[in-house]
């Protein structure tokens, strides 16, 4: 791959894939334990917002950040949030045929979009997972389908001669050199939390969110949505986990620690 402009900080094209999710912090249950969805606002997935913030953090004059979401028409609000926070353009992939997509059908749609509309992109940013689904599989499968490198659990991105991603696996922190066309998935919910300014709002309001349907992307109905999904849910039952409390005398810390160790190992 041509890495010269890439390495030397030429004009960059960043793509950020985002999802609109219910604000899980605002969801509550009724006395029967059922979720109350009424009045729960939809928001830009917090991990996706962090991914966008990471892209904005490395953006220089002339670079372009494109925010992309697949979802119903109201997902426009999540894209508007991206524009307010610094994205330069936004695409909403919206079509009834996209509904019910599993990870595979979602990734097929997203990769088809990138290949057709932004084939010369430099980096893709994704949130680690969606706060409503928690599968955390889209970034990895998207990287696989695009044939690019994937850097999950990315916490930091720097450019100093090379682009480097700091990945935090919990037990291990790695710093890796990344290449043009690679994909980063961002694990923190609060990277560079910002608020737009009134000027940002006005700028965002002036940008048209482009809507693309299945024909625009060039896929057929059997490749996308429910029909293109490989996962079929036969039935769903709540899992039952039984928990048992145990109390130990804490007057001897060493014995208490042994007790905890024995209980969890």
């Amino acid at each position: 791959m041509d890495t010269l402009p890439w390495k030397h900080g030429g004009k960059m094209r960043f793509v950020v894939f985002v999802k609109q999710v219910p604000d899980t912090s605002a969801v509550c249950t009724d006395i029967n334990g059922n979720l109350i969805r009424e009045g729960v606002p939809s928001i830009l997935n917090p991990y996706c917002e962090s991914a966008l913030n990471m892209a904005c953090g490395v953006k220089k004059d002339g670079d372009v950040i494109t925010a992309v979401s697949m979802g119903p028409p109201q997902a426009e609000n999540a894209l508007f949030r991206c524009l307010e926070l610094g994205a330069d353009e936004a695409f909403l992939l919206t079509d009834r045929a996209f509904a019910g997509a599993d990870v595979h059908a979602t990734v097929r749609t997203l990769s088809a979009f990138v290949k057709k509309f932004i084939p010369d992109y430099d980096l893709i940013f994704c949130g680690k997972q969606a706060a409503d689904g928690d599968t955390a599989q889209v970034p990895a499968e998207l990287a696989y389908m695009l044939g690019c490198g994937q850097f999950c659990y990315t916490q930091k991105l720097t450019l100093s001669g090379e682009w480097k991603a700091v990945q935090n696996y919990g037990s291990e922190v790695r710093e890796c050199i990344i290449g043009k066309g690679d994909l980063l998935s961002v694990s923190d919910e609060e990277i560079g939390f910002r608020l737009p300014s009134a000027a940002d709002y006005i700028r965002a309001a002036g940008i048209e969110i482009k809507k693309l349907n299945i024909a625009d992307i060039g896929l057929d109905t059997f490749s996308v949505g429910l029909k293109g999904s490989k996962t079929k849910i036969v039935s769903a039952t709540p899992s039952k986990v039984s928990r048992r409390g145990a109390v130990t005398d804490g007057s001897d810390p060493a014995k208490a620690a042994e007790h905890i160790r024995d209980a969890i190992i």
């Binding site: 604000d23 912090s25 605002a26 606002p41 608020l195 300014s197 009134a198 000027a199 940002d200 006005i202």
Partner: peptide
């Protein structure tokens, strides 16, 4: 939008600007 344009003029004349501000319309913000 017309309110923002008016505020832009009024804030500039007192050392402020639309850039030097925060805004939020989502409930969480």
């Amino acid at each position: 939008m017309s309110n923002y344009r008016k505020i832009e003029i009024l804030s500039k004349s007192n050392g402020g600007s639309l850039e030097n501000s925060w805004c939020g319309h989502e409930l969480r913000d």
